[in-house]
């Protein structure tokens, strides 16, 4: 029973979504399913927040190593929640100036907006910036020409990287016009457009078929492992 009900919900919702893409009559049903998903996700968020609170509170209660950070997490969470839900500092919407809560939560002057703009965005950018270093370290370790395939990949990567820099233009600028296709910048475009696109499409076709088959397995109830291992 515990398995049958969710399975049927999934199957029906899935078919509705599928049909709504083709049959206008079911479109609104499809939208309803989408709405239901959003509602469920919103309810689940309470569970998520609960889990966050529980894990961190337990940490504080047990005085685990680094429990201070857990406290900070919870305090920040509470502050953001209060200023966001309470729309503190939010100027009222110009259309309804008498309703204090009518403004957008991250409108100018709101604390929530301020937190977003001046705390979250810079922190996020910092994390993102780390990526450059990770790319460098991964490339350094991974690009070793130890077999034919690796050599091919390495030389292709080299052409593309050079072709995207001015050095590439300078290096092969002397090539006459009739051989301009061999200029690094053109070669790099050519590789990206032809070989890369081709390879990518092969993967994408595979993925598309995979997605279709996976969806079908779930819709037909053949695959129930998403609810936990089959038996």
């Amino acid at each position: 029973m515990k398995r049958l009900v969710p399975m049927w919900i999934a199957i029906i919702a899935g078919f509705v979504m599928l049909l709504s893409a083709f049959f206008p009559i079911t479109e609104s049903l499809g939208e309803t399913v989408g709405d239901v998903f959003n509602v469920v996700a919103a309810i689940a968020f309470i569970l998520g927040a609960g889990s966050l609170a529980k894990v961190n509170l337990a940490k504080i209660s047990r005085r685990d190593q680094g429990w201070g950070y857990a406290a900070i997490t919870l305090i920040c969470f509470a502050i953001t929640l209060v200023v966001g839900l309470g729309k503190i500092g939010v100027p009222p919407n110009t259309q309804f100036p008498l309703l204090a809560w009518s403004g957008e939560k991250n409108a100018d002057g709101s604390i929530f907006g301020w937190i977003y703009e001046f705390a979250l965005v810079p922190i996020t950018s910092t994390m993102f910036a780390l990526l450059a270093f990770y790319v460098a370290s991964a490339a350094f370790r991974a690009f070793r020409a130890k077999n034919l395939e690796a050599i091919l990949l390495l030389s292709t990567a080299f052409i593309i990287l050079l072709g995207r820099t001015f050095a590439g233009v300078v290096l092969t600028g002397w090539l006459p016009d009739w051989a301009s296709g061999l200029r690094l910048e053109n070669l790099s475009v050519y590789i990206m457009q032809v070989f890369n696109t081709a390879g990518n499409r092969a993967i994408i076709i595979g993925i598309a078929l995979g997605v279709t088959a996976t969806s079908l397995r779930i819709l037909l109830g053949v695959d129930r492992s998403w609810m936990g291992s089959g038996d």
Partner: peptide
């Protein structure tokens, strides 16, 4: 396993 691009395949 220590992988390099050559092992991708």
């Amino acid at each position: 396993q220590q992988r390099t691009v050559g092992d991708a395949f």
